[in-house]
Design a protein around this nucleic acid. Structure first.
Length: 869
RNA sequence: GCCCGGGUGGUGAAAUCGGCAGACACAGCGGACUUAAAAUCCGCAGACUCUAAACGGUCGUGGGGGUUCAAGUCCCCCCCCGGGCACCA
């Protein structure tokens, strides 16, 4: 019994994150100002550090831990560098899982969501993430609550008034599992973004759209200036926008009593003399017209429509074999008056360009394949130069940059590129065409046939207004009426039974559905679709700057101060979803006129820099429940502590790369933290004592110098990484090297060969360096060393280049590029000295003997290479 | 097909500007401490080869070629893995 007591008092304290971490979290939670952003007139440089907000599933994923560990390290670093930091967090709280949960467990979506939020907030706090949850200005945003979504509705009204929100019937993507429509961006290679085993169907529905295409060109051009965004994301967005310059050309239908015209879209109007047919999409309106009195054609067309639909749903539209059918009609080429046959072909898409093309088999791969199959004429109109025999060129020839036109009437001899411009202008003068720009990007369909989302603030007046309210901007033809701002928020009714019946759940809630028309007071029906949840996430980071505002979405002055976001961090999977919508929304807000004529925001881009972190994988595969390879953050924290879990997430791989989660690695980091804890705690009492004394002067021993050198090298390395490369894995490793160095000097320290002042500087520096990566341990050690105040507000250490400088350099010596040995020379040695020192080595002399020294390469601080023959 | 990433020990990785390949860890092996184990500490550790052992030698960053005194790094060709786009006229 006695023995055990002795052990307890004499053994050094052990590192116990399970005890340390909750104790500190409780203290931090009790201090609302700790992580609160300062007012916009604080005078400090601002830094807006943002991580993508999570969907509150109720369980933090290990991928979140990685994302937030990166952001947290950066935010803490910026605080230590004296910035006014905004580091907010919120909840992307609308969406289908809440309805599914309601269906499964009979829990109301709101209660389910709010309970999940509470659980996840707790997890984030347990991780020690530096979010301000508790101050009076806490930025926390919950998108499913009326104080947030009312502003979605407000923006919707502004966009409706500005012609940016409109209703139309069109072919839309339908996910049978979500039981709702999806935007194009939410369909990934033909499957639903939420259900990767669910093929998306095409349906004809009337839907609300946001006119993102109005900004297509600006969104594309903006990419060029966004140097802080990864090239990959910019390229993906550029591909998605898909700008293409071309020409519309009208072809008259030959001998047609109603003077029908077919407008084709082409990027190669210069090849129009080689057009040997017109090809129409099966769903082109004129095809439907002709099919009306041609049963055979109708049957063919129907088959092609079905084929295209199936291919599109299968996600491989290029896979279907080209086929077509002649309509028996022909069209007149306005450039040369020639008649060309009109066909319907399954490779022509109705929703791109005009759904009609001029087919130029000689100079287009697809047209060539089609013409070869059906024996259509193939006519060359391009050569690499005028003198060339046309037959020399292998077909199809699609070059344009260095090619010229042949056999193209008055255009013969023109270069292709110039001809494109001139011929478009010619068509415009002749009234049968014009230059144009088309985009692959389509307007954003925002209607969702779901309950758990923002109600769309529109009503349908039963009287239809019949022209009684001329000029009222709230009214569209057919009685589509915008609610006034004073009617906001349109509250989502709480008592809604979630069923699997089709259609919008809100349409079955009579008390919601029936209302009065704000214009005429007559009976009206509310819009019962809700908004896409990507609306919520398109502007949440503006709300963070002023989350409690109940008069406006946010205060323009605050947004002006905080924006653009200095660093946005999240997964690359949102490259053409959230990230393109956010750029659109920022421009919309910029263009919303306030009373003084200025926009709601001044910036056009939301974020200065974007960082996309890699995935966390396990056993070489993406984690998923079905594979059973999910890593639980809670379990990691329980076993190793939050600091070790976070630090491992940063240590195991550079942040932009995928990370293979290995629990043994977390254990290793935990061992490292124990070592730090033991070392610092051992000397903490002496350091505490020393704080009240004058620094001791006197000469530094070699041990002092080595420790200080290593400290300052580490400070320099980590400081540099924070501002550039973000290789936090090597930051952690350099801290380990520093700690190994201190441990290696433990005997010297115990023997009194290291000054207390040195120990103070080194251990204090170590704890400061640790603070962004292991905040709990840093706080614990900081206090143990006797320092007052939060370690996260202490100044970041400054590397002293003089102290960091090596006194001697290890110089590898090579003969003919092969390493012979490594010599040590004083750091300031010049080339001659280094060369002489190298040549003096016995091993080197042996290899030079009897040879001709052809060349000597001496690179200061790098190596010596003797080239001999 | 086109456009991005990536390919380095048993594993995660490092090498930032063309200059010692494998830092720092994990796993492994050997040793100390212990009655024993855990924990901790010390040491070994790319492959092949020579040797009793040591000292050595050869090869080595997906493959092939090139530039250079020197290549994981630059250039050309090719293979594999991951991602994006794709009858977009």
């Amino acid at each position: 019994m006695q023995r055990i007591d002795d052990q307890q008092t004499t053994e050094p304290q052990r590192y116990t994150p399970a005890e340390i971490e909750p104790r500190w979290q409780a203290r931090w939670d009790a201090d609302p100002s700790l992580y609160a952003a300062e007012p916009i007139d604080s005078g400090k440089p601002k830094y807006y550090c943002l991580e993508m907000l999570p969907y509150p599933s109720g369980q933090l994923h290990i991928g979140h831990v990685r994302n937030y560990a990166i952001g947290d390290a950066l935010a803490r670093y910026m605080w230590m560098r004296g910035h006014n930091v905004l580091h907010p967090m919120g909840w992307d709280a609308f969406g289908l899982p809440a309805e599914n949960a309601a269906l499964k467990n009979k829990t109301p979506p709101r209660a389910w969501t709010l309970a999940n939020i509470a659980a996840m907030r707790k997890q984030m706090q347990r991780l020690g993430l530096s979010y301000d949850w508790t101050s009076a200005h806490s930025p926390e945003v919950t998108t499913c609550l009326p104080d947030y979504y009312r502003w979605n509705q407000w923006f919707f009204l502004k966009m409706f008034a500005g012609g940016l929100a409109y209703r139309k019937k069109s072919k839309v993507n339908w996910c049978p599992q979500c039981q709702t429509v999806l935007a194009n961006e939410q369909v990934i290679s033909g499957v639903c973004w939420r259900h990767d085993d669910q093929t998306v169907e095409q349906r004809d529905l009337t839907q609300w759209f946001f006119r993102i295409t109005r900004y297509a060109d600006e969104l594309l051009r903006g990419l060029d200036t966004m140097e802080g965004w990864p090239e990959k994301v910019r390229t993906m967005q550029a591909n998605w926008i898909g700008r293409s310059e071309g020409t519309f050309v009208d072809f008259d239908v030959y001998q047609c009593t109603n003077a029908l015209k077919i407008m084709v879209f082409t990027t190669r109007v210069d090849t129009i003399f080689g057009a040997t047919s017109i090809q129409l999409a099966p769903e082109h309106p004129i095809v439907a017209h002709w099919a009306g009195f041609d049963e055979a054609l109708a049957a063919e067309v129907e088959a092609m429509v079905a084929e295209q639909k199936a291919a599109k749903e299968a996600g491989d539209i290029s896979g279907i074999a080209k086929r077509g059918v002649a309509t028996g009609r022909s069209a007149v080429n306005p450039f040369n008056g020639e008649q060309v046959p009109i066909w319907v072909a399954n490779y022509i898409l109705a929703d791109y360009g005009t759904g009609a093309i001029m087919s130029v088999p000689a100079h287009d791969e697809r047209d060539f394949e089609f013409a070869t199959k059906y024996g259509l004429e193939i006519r060359r109109v391009i050569a690499e130069n005028v003198d060339e025999t046309p037959e020399a060129l292998e077909l199809p020839y699609t070059g344009e940059a260095e090619a010229v036109l042949i056999e193209s009437g008055e255009w013969t001899g023109e270069s292709c590129l110039e001809a494109q411009e001139k011929m478009a202008a010619f068509a415009e003068r002749g009234g049968f065409g014009r230059a144009t720009v088309t985009y692959r990007l389509k307007d954003w369909g925002v209607s969702r046939q779901r309950y758990w989302g923002t109600p769309i603030p529109m009503v349908y007046c039963e009287r239809g207004h019949d022209g009684r309210e001329p000029g009222d901007p709230r009214v569209e033809p057919g009685g589509v009426v915008a609610l006034p701002e004073s009617a906001l928020p349109v509250l989502l009714p709480e008592q809604v039974e979630i069923t699997q019946q089709g259609g919008s759940p809100l349409s079955r809630v009579d008390s919601f559905l029936h209302t009065t028309c704000p214009v005429c007071g007559g009976p009206a029906l509310r819009e019962t679709d809700t908004m896409d949840t990507f609306v919520d996430s398109s502007w949440y980071f503006y709300r963070y700057t002023d989350a409690k505002n109940d008069r406006a979405p946010f205060d323009a002055a605050k947004a002006k101060y905080w924006f653009p976001i200095d660093q946005y961090i999240g997964g690359v999977e949102h490259a053409i979803l959230h990230l393109i919508y956010s750029r659109f929304w920022t421009r919309v807000m910029r263009d919303i006129q306030q009373a003084d004529g200025s926009g709601l925001v001044e910036n056009s881009e939301p974020a200065e820099r974007l960082f996309t972190q890699g995935m966390v994988i396990k056993d070489g595969a993406k984690m998923s429940k079905s594979k059973g390879n999910v890593v639980s953050p809670d379990l990691m924290i329980e076993r190793y502590g939050a600091d070790a879990t976070r630090m491992y997430a940063l240590f195991a791989a550079p942040p932009d790369r995928d990370l293979e989660w290995q629990e043994d690695g977390v254990a290793g980091v935990s061992r490292f933290l124990s070592k730090v804890y033991r070392l610092v705690m051992k000397f903490a009492p002496a350091l505490r004592e020393q704080q009240h004394q004058e620094a001791v002067s006197g000469t530094q021993s070699a041990d002092d110098q080595v420790l200080l050198r290593k400290l300052h090298q580490t400070v320099g390395k980590i400081t540099q990484d924070f501002s550039g490369r973000w290789h936090f894995n090597t930051c952690v490793s350099s801290i380990m090297i520093l700690v190994n160095e201190i441990a290696a000097h433990e005997a010297a320290i115990d023997a009194g060969r290291v000054r207390l002042a040195t120990m103070t500087e080194v251990l204090r520096g170590l704890v400061l360096l640790l603070a962004p990566f292991a905040p709990f341990l840093a706080a614990e050690l900081w206090e143990a060393m006797g320092y007052e105040g939060a370690v996260f507000r202490a100044g970041w250490p400054v590397a002293d280049a003089e102290l960091a400088r090596e006194q001697s350099l290890a110089v590898p010596v090579q003969v003919n590029g092969k390493l012979v040995l490594v010599i040590s020379v004083p750091a300031e040695s010049d080339k001659e000295t280094i060369k002489a020192a190298a040549m003096a080595e016995e091993k080197v002399r042996a290899r030079l003997e009897g040879k001709v020294l052809a060349k000597t390469v001496v690179v200061k601080g790098k190596l010596v290479n003797f080239v001999v023959r």
